[in-house]
Design a binder for these strands. Structure first.
Lengths: 162, 162
DNA sequence: GCAATATAGATCCATATGGTTCTATATTGA
DNA sequence: TCAATATAGAACCATATGGATCTATATTGC
């Protein structure tokens, strides 16, 4: 990192928007690395692998629940599901009491593919967060959880149209 | 949040990818709210306002430096600059010793527009991070900084093509 | 019981995105 | 000095994205 880069960081991450800026920076920087890798090596857009992740860990999950875990527009999830089904990485079962709803289940190939991706992403997580001590990691997660569990994350009073 | 949603969160944010998942979740959820607001009320894509931010805070900045602060593909920054210049929110000056490079400066309108956006985004930041105590916010920022300052964030050994 | 409304998810379409390539200029090294 | 290489940024184009709408089914209230 150049001196110029460092002083820009120093100022930005001390500014009035420092928290949002710092957090977004990490996610943007990591996505540049991680998304590119997964798209290149698995020919799979980022929404597809996160939907596959949700399906493997929560078999029977519905599209609308995937959307709660990975906050994305509904049609993005819908498309990801279509792609995963076309590639036979998941299958769908219509809900018995609500025929609109479709439960998602991984196929064997889907579970195997996710295992591969997950292993790689875990290594990547260790690269990114490895710079923190175990105790710092724990703290970081606790603070993230606190933000996620608050009800202001998904809606806004400040952003009512003015 | 439904019970189902809570238990999905509980499990996901305790899993082996908990750190990446938790951080991405916050940024995705916030972007859904913030990006939509700015696009709707200012008719400005997210990259444009972040580039405007960089220009106002670092007048004379180059496109390649904006890219360091907001890790995005080079052509996205290039397009954002074009849009901002077309709307006369920034102007450009060719570098005297390197005629390829163009320094960015905000116009008065650009600075005024950013001030409005920034105020709103600051209110939003307070909604999202307001759930943390001052001390927790400070800790959160310190940990983010530690990750940002490490050299593994922007490249990866794990993701060398295999 | 049934009209009004809400919800799950699919599809449409205009636009944003990002990998790649291109041009112009700078730097490097034999 | 000048060919080889690197860099700043623009442009091209195939694809991803997301707001809006649509269909089908479920729920709600009179």
């Amino acid at each position: 990192m150049s001196d110029k880069g460092l002083s820009i960081f120093e100022e930005t991450f001390s500014s009035d928007l420092c928290y949002l800026m710092a957090m977004s920076h990490i996610v943007l920087a990591n996505n540049q690395v991680t998304s590119r890798f997964i798209e290149k090596n698995y020919d799979m857009p980022v929404h597809a692998w996160s939907t596959l992740y949700a399906t493997v860990y929560f078999p029977g999950i519905l599209a609308k629940e995937v959307q709660v875990l990975f906050p994305r527009p509904q049609n993005s999830i819908s498309r990801a599901i279509k792609l995963l089904e076309e590639r036979q990485l998941i299958r769908r079962e219509v809900d018995k009491s609500d025929t609109r709803a479709k439960h998602l289940f991984p196929t064997e190939e889907g579970a195997a593919l996710l295992a591969g991706i997950e292993e790689k992403v875990k290594q990547r997580q260790e690269e990114v967060f490895g710079v923190l001590t175990d105790s710092e990691k724990e703290t970081f997660l606790r603070l993230c959880r606190k933000i996620i569990d608050s009800d202001t994350l998904n809606s806004s009073a400040a952003f009512e149209v003015f």
